[in-house]
Amino acid sequence: MAIKATIYKAQLQIADMDRNVYADHSVTIARHPSETDERMMIRLLAFALNVPADDKQGQLEFAKDLWDVDEPALWHKDYTDAIQHWIDVGQPDDKRLMRAAGRAERVTVISFSSSTPVWWKGIETKLTRAANLVVWQIEAAQSQALARLAERGMQLQLTVQDGTVWMSTGTDSVEITPRRLTVGG
Protein backbone atom coordinates (compact mmCIF):
# COMPACT_ATOMS: atom_id res chain seq x y z
CA MET A 1 0.00 0.00 0.00
CA ALA A 2 1.33 3.42 -1.00
CA ILE A 3 2.02 6.02 1.64
CA LYS A 4 -0.43 8.91 1.39
CA ALA A 5 0.27 12.62 1.48
CA THR A 6 0.24 14.42 4.82
CA ILE A 7 -2.10 17.40 4.96
CA TYR A 8 -0.87 20.72 6.35
CA LYS A 9 -3.04 23.79 6.81
CA ALA A 10 -1.85 27.37 7.01
CA GLN A 11 -3.63 30.61 7.81
CA LEU A 12 -1.48 33.05 5.90
CA GLN A 13 -1.61 36.82 6.40
CA ILE A 14 0.25 38.58 3.61
CA ALA A 15 1.44 42.18 3.64
CA ASP A 16 3.49 42.53 0.45
CA MET A 17 4.37 46.21 0.26
CA ASP A 18 6.48 45.69 -2.86
CA ARG A 19 3.47 44.47 -4.88
CA ASN A 20 0.67 46.17 -2.89
CA VAL A 21 -0.88 42.80 -2.04
CA TYR A 22 -2.59 42.60 1.34
CA ALA A 23 -4.68 39.50 1.95
CA ASP A 24 -5.48 36.56 4.19
CA HIS A 25 -5.43 33.07 2.70
CA SER A 26 -6.41 29.68 4.10
CA VAL A 27 -4.05 27.25 2.41
CA THR A 28 -4.14 23.46 2.40
CA ILE A 29 -0.92 21.75 1.38
CA ALA A 30 -0.63 18.07 0.51
CA ARG A 31 2.92 17.11 1.45
CA HIS A 32 4.21 14.20 -0.64
CA PRO A 33 5.84 11.42 1.45
CA SER A 34 9.23 12.18 -0.14
CA GLU A 35 8.98 15.94 0.46
CA THR A 36 10.86 17.65 3.29
CA ASP A 37 9.54 20.41 5.56
CA GLU A 38 12.05 22.71 3.86
CA ARG A 39 10.66 22.12 0.36
CA MET A 40 7.06 22.35 1.54
CA MET A 41 7.74 25.69 3.23
CA ILE A 42 9.47 26.98 0.08
CA ARG A 43 6.28 26.07 -1.84
CA LEU A 44 4.26 28.01 0.74
CA LEU A 45 6.67 30.95 0.41
CA ALA A 46 6.34 30.77 -3.40
CA PHE A 47 2.56 30.93 -3.01
CA ALA A 48 2.77 33.99 -0.76
CA LEU A 49 5.22 35.82 -3.03
CA ASN A 50 3.23 35.18 -6.20
CA VAL A 51 -0.43 35.13 -5.23
CA PRO A 52 -2.28 37.77 -7.26
CA ALA A 53 -4.08 40.64 -5.56
CA ASP A 54 -7.41 39.34 -6.88
CA ASP A 55 -8.78 36.37 -8.79
CA LYS A 56 -10.05 38.25 -11.85
CA GLN A 57 -7.51 36.42 -14.04
CA GLY A 58 -7.78 33.04 -12.26
CA GLN A 59 -6.16 31.66 -9.14
CA LEU A 60 -2.72 30.54 -8.04
CA GLU A 61 -2.92 26.89 -6.99
CA PHE A 62 -0.65 24.18 -5.68
CA ALA A 63 -0.05 21.63 -8.43
CA LYS A 64 1.14 18.03 -8.30
CA ASP A 65 4.78 18.28 -9.34
CA LEU A 66 5.90 15.36 -7.18
CA TRP A 67 3.05 13.17 -8.47
CA ASP A 68 2.96 14.36 -12.09
CA VAL A 69 6.09 15.41 -14.01
CA ASP A 70 3.98 17.57 -16.34
CA GLU A 71 2.96 19.91 -13.52
CA PRO A 72 4.90 22.54 -11.56
CA ALA A 73 4.87 23.09 -7.81
CA LEU A 74 2.31 25.89 -8.31
CA TRP A 75 0.55 27.41 -11.25
CA HIS A 76 -1.74 30.28 -12.00
CA LYS A 77 -4.24 29.35 -14.69
CA ASP A 78 -6.78 31.74 -16.11
CA TYR A 79 -10.41 30.78 -16.58
CA THR A 80 -9.70 29.35 -20.04
CA ASP A 81 -7.14 26.98 -18.43
CA ALA A 82 -4.20 28.82 -20.04
CA ILE A 83 -1.14 28.86 -17.80
CA GLN A 84 -0.33 32.42 -16.77
CA HIS A 85 2.45 31.56 -14.32
CA TRP A 86 4.40 28.31 -13.86
CA ILE A 87 6.33 28.12 -10.57
CA ASP A 88 8.88 25.40 -9.82
CA VAL A 89 10.91 24.94 -6.65
CA GLY A 90 14.26 23.21 -6.42
CA GLN A 91 16.59 22.61 -9.34
CA PRO A 92 14.62 21.55 -12.42
CA ASP A 93 16.56 20.63 -15.54
CA ASP A 94 16.85 22.92 -18.56
CA LYS A 95 14.52 20.82 -20.74
CA ARG A 96 11.71 21.08 -18.19
CA LEU A 97 12.20 24.84 -17.93
CA MET A 98 12.23 25.35 -21.70
CA ARG A 99 9.00 23.31 -22.00
CA ALA A 100 7.46 25.40 -19.22
CA ALA A 101 8.59 28.63 -20.93
CA GLY A 102 6.75 27.52 -24.06
CA ARG A 103 3.58 26.64 -22.16
CA ALA A 104 3.27 29.56 -19.73
CA GLU A 105 3.27 33.32 -19.95
CA ARG A 106 5.73 33.53 -17.02
CA VAL A 107 8.02 30.94 -15.41
CA THR A 108 9.57 31.32 -11.96
CA VAL A 109 12.01 28.99 -10.21
CA ILE A 110 12.86 29.24 -6.53
CA SER A 111 16.00 27.27 -5.72
CA PHE A 112 16.95 26.77 -2.10
CA SER A 113 19.80 24.26 -1.88
CA SER A 114 23.41 25.08 -1.09
CA SER A 115 24.22 23.51 -4.48
CA THR A 116 22.21 26.18 -6.34
CA PRO A 117 25.30 27.98 -7.75
CA VAL A 118 26.61 24.73 -9.26
CA TRP A 119 23.18 23.83 -10.71
CA TRP A 120 22.69 27.34 -12.12
CA LYS A 121 26.17 27.51 -13.67
CA GLY A 122 25.43 24.22 -15.46
CA ILE A 123 22.16 25.34 -17.10
CA GLU A 124 22.27 29.14 -17.26
CA THR A 125 23.51 29.35 -20.87
CA LYS A 126 20.95 26.75 -22.01
CA LEU A 127 18.08 29.04 -20.98
CA THR A 128 18.96 32.25 -22.84
CA ARG A 129 15.95 31.88 -25.18
CA ALA A 130 13.51 31.74 -22.24
CA ALA A 131 12.87 35.48 -21.91
CA ASN A 132 9.88 34.78 -19.63
CA LEU A 133 11.97 32.89 -17.01
CA VAL A 134 13.06 34.26 -13.63
CA VAL A 135 15.22 32.23 -11.24
CA TRP A 136 15.56 33.10 -7.56
CA GLN A 137 17.90 31.69 -4.94
CA ILE A 138 17.04 31.37 -1.27
CA GLU A 139 20.15 30.84 0.86
CA ALA A 140 20.23 27.34 2.38
CA ALA A 141 20.44 28.68 5.95
CA GLN A 142 17.30 30.77 5.35
CA SER A 143 15.30 27.90 3.85
CA GLN A 144 16.36 25.61 6.69
CA ALA A 145 15.23 28.23 9.23
CA LEU A 146 11.95 28.47 7.34
CA ALA A 147 11.54 24.68 7.64
CA ARG A 148 11.60 25.00 11.42
CA LEU A 149 8.34 26.99 11.23
CA ALA A 150 6.49 23.99 9.71
CA GLU A 151 3.58 22.59 11.69
CA ARG A 152 0.45 20.68 10.68
CA GLY A 153 -1.62 23.76 11.56
CA MET A 154 0.17 27.08 11.00
CA GLN A 155 -0.69 30.71 11.65
CA LEU A 156 1.82 32.67 9.56
CA GLN A 157 2.39 36.34 8.87
CA LEU A 158 4.40 37.25 5.81
CA THR A 159 5.71 40.76 5.25
CA VAL A 160 7.62 41.86 2.15
CA GLN A 161 9.38 45.21 1.90
CA ASP A 162 12.21 46.31 -0.39
CA GLY A 163 12.85 42.73 -1.53
CA THR A 164 13.22 41.32 2.00
CA VAL A 165 10.71 38.80 3.32
CA TRP A 166 9.85 38.15 6.96
CA MET A 167 7.77 35.10 7.83
CA SER A 168 6.69 34.71 11.42
CA THR A 169 4.53 32.54 13.61
CA GLY A 170 4.08 35.07 16.38
CA THR A 171 6.79 33.41 18.49
CA ASP A 172 9.46 32.80 15.83
CA SER A 173 10.51 34.77 12.76
CA VAL A 174 12.70 34.14 9.71
CA GLU A 175 14.20 36.79 7.44
CA ILE A 176 14.59 35.77 3.80
CA THR A 177 16.39 37.70 1.08
CA PRO A 178 15.70 36.11 -2.30
CA ARG A 179 18.50 36.74 -4.80
CA ARG A 180 17.62 36.98 -8.46
CA LEU A 181 19.92 34.90 -10.67
CA THR A 182 18.43 35.76 -14.08
CA VAL A 183 18.58 38.97 -16.06
CA GLY A 184 15.48 38.43 -18.26
CA GLY A 185 11.89 37.74 -17.33
Rank of each mutant, 00 (worst) to 15 (best):
Asp68Val: 08
Gly153Thr: 12
Asp65Tyr: 03
Thr128Arg: 04
Glu151Trp: 07
Trp136Ala: 14
Ala140Lys: 03
Met98Leu: 15
Gln155Trp: 01
Ala130Glu: 02
Thr159Met: 14
Thr116Phe: 07
Val89Met: 07
Ile110Trp: 09
Leu156Ser: 03
Glu139Tyr: 02
Glu71Pro: 01
Gly90Ser: 05
Val89Gln: 04
Glu105Tyr: 04
Leu133Asp: 11
Val69Ser: 15
Ala131Gln: 12
Lys95Trp: 00
Pro117Gly: 04
Ser115Arg: 07
Met154Phe: 04
Ala150Ile: 01
Lys95Thr: 13
Asp88Thr: 00
Glu151Gln: 15
Val107Cys: 00
Lys95Ser: 10
Lys77Asn: 14
Ile110Ala: 06
Trp119Met: 08
Gln157His: 09
His85Cys: 09
Gln84Met: 12
Asp78Phe: 05
Pro72Tyr: 05
Trp86Cys: 12
Gly122Asn: 14
Thr159Ala: 11
Val118Asp: 14
Trp67Phe: 14
Met154Val: 03
Val89Lys: 03
Gly102Asn: 11
Phe62Glu: 04
Ser113Leu: 11
Ser115Gly: 10
Arg99Glu: 02
Arg99Tyr: 08
Thr80Leu: 13
Arg96Cys: 08
His85Lys: 12
Lys77Gln: 14
Asp81Cys: 01
Arg96Pro: 03
Leu156Asn: 03
Ser143Tyr: 01
Leu66Arg: 15
Leu158Ser: 10
Leu158Arg: 05
Gly122Phe: 12
Ala141Pro: 00
Val109Ile: 09
Tyr79Ile: 13
Glu151Lys: 15
Ala145Ile: 03
Gln144Ser: 06
Ser115Gln: 07
Ala101Tyr: 12
Gln157Ala: 10
Leu149Thr: 06
Asn132Ala: 15
His76Thr: 06
Val134Arg: 14
Ser113Asp: 15
Val134Asn: 06
Gln142Cys: 09
Ala101Arg: 11
Ser143Met: 00
Thr108Gln: 05
Leu66Asn: 07
Asp88Phe: 03
Leu74Ser: 09
Arg129Phe: 00
Ala101Trp: 07
Ser113Phe: 14
Thr125His: 11
Asn132Gln: 09
Gln144Gly: 01
Gln144Tyr: 00
Ala145Arg: 06
Gln157Arg: 12
Trp86Glu: 12
Asp88Leu: 08
Thr128Ala: 06
Lys126Leu: 06
Leu66Cys: 09
Phe62Ala: 02
Leu156Asp: 05
Val89Thr: 15
Gln137His: 13
Ala145Leu: 03
Gly153Ser: 11
Glu151His: 15
Val107Phe: 01
Ala145Lys: 04
Ile123Ala: 10
Arg106Ala: 08
Arg148Glu: 11
Thr125Gln: 11
Phe112Asn: 04
Arg99Met: 07
Gly122Thr: 08
Arg106Phe: 09
Leu74Tyr: 02
Glu124His: 10
Val69Trp: 11
Arg129Gly: 00
Gln155Cys: 07
Thr108Ser: 09
